[in-house]
Design a protein around this nucleic acid. Structure first.
Lengths: 230, 230
DNA sequence: TCCGGAGAAGTTGCATGCAAGGTAGGGCCG
DNA sequence: CGGCCCTACCTTGCATGCAACTTCTCCGGA
């Protein structure tokens, strides 16, 4: 049975979703009253949520001057992928001995579903990939059973993006990426940590190449520091 | 010129210091009114500080039931050192090419000072080691110039301890630990990243052995779940 | 025309008050 | 005598109000 969430918690996850989902662009101003109105609560829980998001790195707060959705530079983005390249393969290897058949089946289902909705053609639905991808990686993190590693990874990944960015994958990279998921499932089934680790290393490298290219394009395209609220 | 801190920020760092400094024992209850009185502010900034500390993992908050200083198990502690063993040597290697002579001199001074106050004898002052040690490691983190890695490390290290724990070092381990600092300085001066990385690896392994042993003793000693506020 | 400053409008920071939820103690019933 | 429930107290969650700070605008002077 799930405990009724507090207003602050709802505000927190609502804001997180808005930012992660791209409805709130990086650099967008986050006025307390506006958010409070939109979420149907007072400023107090909104302030608490913003505070926590700032601690997570999703939001930047300057005292007396309000909060904005965090922005990042290409260098920061590369730093994040540096780190993912160290942590995630390790985490994947850890997951191997802990994965029970049921877990593997679940990951398998996610990987297959991603291949379906990601396949080029009229039924392709890139937006649907985002939650599936998150589910896949979250499941893997949970299987690793290493809270400290998970916390470190979360701290590093949150600030930037990783989401709504399947939009930026070119066809070949996307096919590679989806193939990696399936291959990780295979490695899990085979119980081979080294295999799993290697695939995840490739997976991150592939994602890194895509993201960095996209970020470069984006920053050159938007020379104007955008000032939008929604 | 430094901007005047807000009450919430002061509450945040005050609480962080109290927890890190050991004045607030793990598991200690953190009543909002009591803290507000002690810090001379209202409950609002205290709540904000607690919220952020919860995001950092230093305190645990249960809705409607208040906040407590976070506790950790031996397994969690080992997980943290696992992670440090991966991240900190890497970070140290990164610092090598960025260290200018002035930086090295500064680290050298810290390392020497630690050797002085840590030397066995009547002048030994283990409490003084804590801030020096933090300064040394923080300096190294800054030199690495890798914000994402720093964030990940901070996220992983915060929850547990690392501080006020020179108290638990036996004489030999302490001498080793202080020696490592000096050796890292030497590696920086020599401009040898591999050397620096290796020393840091040893440094973490040494600390890990000490901490895990101390944690084991502590948990067996305190079978009673302590319930102190100060 | 451009720069500087005074004023006003809008925001944030914090304190306080009230209501809801939780906890502890005592009395009642089995 | 033991267990349960009810009550009173305490704590947290949130809304609201006010003061301080920022920023935008408008006006006068160079």
């Amino acid at each position: 049975m799930t405990r009724p969430l507090t207003s602050a918690e709802r505000a927190l996850s609502a804001l997180r979703e808005m930012i992660m989902g791209g409805q709130l662009a990086p650099g967008a101003r986050l006025g307390e009253v506006e958010l409070a109105d939109r979420l149907g609560v007072s400023r107090t829980p909104v302030r608490e949520a913003l505070s926590r998001l700032a601690a997570e790195g999703l939001v930047q707060v300057v005292p007396n001057r309000g909060a904005r959705v965090a922005t990042w530079t290409v260098a920061e983005l590369e730093g994040v992928f540096d780190l993912r390249a160290v942590l995630e393969p390790r985490l994947t290897a850890l997951a191997v001995p802990n994965a029970r058949p049921a877990d593997v089946d679940e990951l398998d289902a996610l990987a297959r579903r991603m291949q379906e909705v990601g396949a080029p053609g009229p039924d392709q639905d890139l937006d649907a990939l985002v939650p599936l991808n998150r589910a896949f990686h979250d499941r893997l993190v949970a299987l690793a059973g290493h809270p400290a590693l998970a916390a470190a990874l979360a701290a590093a990944i949150h600030p930037p993006i990783v989401r709504r960015n399947f939009l930026t994958y070119d066809e070949e990279s996307l096919r590679r990426s989806l193939g990696h998921h399936a291959e990780i499932v295979a490695a899990l089934r085979a119980g081979d940590p080294d295999w799993a680790r290697a695939v995840m290393t490739s997976h991150i490298a592939n994602a890194r190449a895509v993201m960095v290219r996209a970020a470069r394009l984006q920053t050159t395209a938007t020379a104007t520091p955008e000032e939008e609220t929604a």
